[in-house]
Nucleic acid binder design. Structure first.
Length: 514
DNA sequence: AAAAAAG
């Protein structure tokens, strides 16, 4: 094919980039033939040992753009005890785990030691992996520094350093840590640096720590993904009103809705809404940063595997997490920062698939909605009339409008309970009942188990229904009483972890910069 | 008005 400039890149395949045969074969086994723009741009330079400054959103195939060349370069040489050869820094634990999955997937023809150093889990296993000598070290900053202070880790053997999601690290106050870490690593290293945006602090950082970097910037689409249908949904301001709005919305969307992420602004809201949804028989999971790590992973994996249909989440899930095939995003709260809106709804409509997003808005959200519309440069349509048609209820316990009524008997009681009032003890089996006292510490794990059991039960039920038999089998509860005892390893990675393809997004090119 | 990350 002859090359006009545009199609030249399109025509590239992975085998044109200089990757090793082992890597290429893993890539093709994973089903990929064509690199994304960031991959095509970054990989050849990374292979030559040059520093790379990649400006790209998550979902652009960014992860593979450093994983693949690193694998190729790691084929020469061996790791020594406590001296990892490469280091990848990630802002969140889930992202770090996701990068590990990528190394496992694309490194399946390599014999590499991979160590994942994240908080919330015991040190023992991590120590062992370091001791054995890690070719690839993937870490969140806190735990990494912790290990180093304990003397278990030497960073002066690091040949390649990756800093991922730098702007998010900035938001999270990690920059001082990042600077400390950079200073521990020899000057001669190669640095691959990724950020979605380039605020001044980040530019300064790159000037300090990158040497003559090759700048690779993925093109930005002018507007929001056309594959995402966006709607605003009016609601009263009271929590129970918002929950009801959400439930009705979910039910109305039922036929199209494969699975959904429901974003809340705060962690308490995540747990409240989660418990409420469970009470209302939705197979929901929850994800936020105060949950214990086991529950976080479990929820995320169950959601990915389709064992949970709904995931109530804080913004920990807004960026970067690769959850393919989410059909719906609900914003239970309007995000306070407009960029977060872009990231949140970007969880759907991936790889050109159709996605829907609904944002529940109350009177007090107007200015945030305005900011979002300004950012994305377009008005978002109201789903079913705008806020002028909402009748605001008075007082905390204002009775609900008697209409728009619950379809099931007993709903009123549940709603009363939702509002925090005591109601007559449920007629439901206590097994599915969520402890009212549940706060965020230990009980979350319990709740997680309940959610998991329910998810399994539901999976079985829907399987049966599909087969035409509507009998409900009770699955024996096999939730193990796993306490998170330090020093205890869990081998039971029972469900094979799903692969994380980096979807090429129709959308993610949006630049969420003001 | 938040979330995230070390414990």
């Amino acid at each position: 094919m002859s090359a006009d400039t545009q199609t030249a890149q399109e025509a590239l395949t992975f085998s044109d980039l200089g990757l090793s045969p082992k890597v290429l074969s893993a890539v093709s086994d994973a089903g990929y033939t064509k690199p994304t723009p960031i991959q095509a741009g970054a990989i050849p330079h990374a292979l030559l040992g040059k520093d790379v400054l990649g400006i790209a959103q998550t979902g652009t195939g960014k992860t593979a753009s450093f994983v693949l060349p690193m694998l190729t370069r790691l084929e020469k040489g061996r790791a020594r005890a406590r001296m990892p050869r490469t280091l990848i820094l990630e802002p969140t634990r889930e992202l770090a785990a996701q990068v590990e999955e990528n190394f496992i997937k694309y490194g399946k023809n390599h014999k590499l030691n991979i160590a994942l150093l994240i908080g919330g889990v015991s040190f023992d296993e991590q120590d062992k992996k370091l001791e054995r000598g890690a070719d690839v070290l993937i870490a969140t900053p806190g735990r990494l520094l912790d290990h180093r202070e304990r003397g278990k880790l030497l960073l002066n053997g690091v040949e390649i350093l990756v800093i991922d999601e730098a702007d998010r690290m900035l938001d999270m106050g990690f920059i001082p840590d990042i600077e400390r870490i950079c200073e521990m690593i020899p000057f001669t290293r190669q640095t691959l640096f990724f950020s979605a945006t380039m605020p001044p602090e980040i530019t300064k950082l790159t000037e300090k720590f990158l040497h003559a970097p090759v700048r690779v910037e993925v093109s930005k689409a002018a507007s929001t993904a056309t594959s995402i249908t966006q709607r605003l949904v009016k609601s009263g301001t009271k929590p129970w009103e918002k929950r009801e709005t959400l439930r009705n919305l979910i039910k109305a969307e039922d036929t199209d809705l494969k699975n959904a992420i429901i974003f809340c602004n705060r962690k308490v809201e995540v747990s409240e809404l989660f418990r409420s949804l469970l009470k209302h028989d939705f197979d929901a999971g929850a994800l936020h940063g105060d949950m214990d790590q086991r529950a976080r992973m479990q929820m995320l994996n169950n959601f990915r595997d389709g064992k949970l249909r709904y995931l109530v989440a804080s913004d920990v899930a807004a960026r970067g997490l690769d959850i393919p095939d989410v059909s719906h995003v609900f914003n239970y709260d309007v995000p306070i920062h407009a960029e977060d809106y872009v990231h949140r709804i970007g969880r759907t409509g991936r790889a050109g698939r159709a996605g829907k997003s609904f944002t529940i808005a109350t009177r007090s959200d107007t200015k945030y909605v305005d900011a979002i519309e300004r950012l994305i440069g377009t008005k978002i349509e109201w789903h079913d009339g705008d806020l002028s048609t909402v009748t605001e209820s008075e007082g905390e316990d204002a009775p609900r409008r008697g209409r728009g009524a619950p379809r099931r008997a007993g709903r009123k009681d549940e709603d009363r309970k939702d509002r925090g009032e005591r109601s007559r003890k449920d007629r439901h089996a206590k097994r599915d009942d969520v402890p009212e006292t549940t706060r965020d510490e230990q009980p979350v794990a319990e709740v997680a188990d309940i959610a998991e059991r329910r998810a399994r039960k539901d999976a079985i039920r829907s399987e049966n229904e599909r087969k035409g038999s509507s009998n409900r089998h009770e699955q024996r509860g096999d939730a193990r009483p796993q306490r998170d005892r330090p020093g205890r390893h869990r081998q039971e990675e029972d469900d094979a972890t799903v692969g994380f393809g980096d979807d090429v997004p129709a959308f993610m090119r949006i630049v969420a910069k003001v």
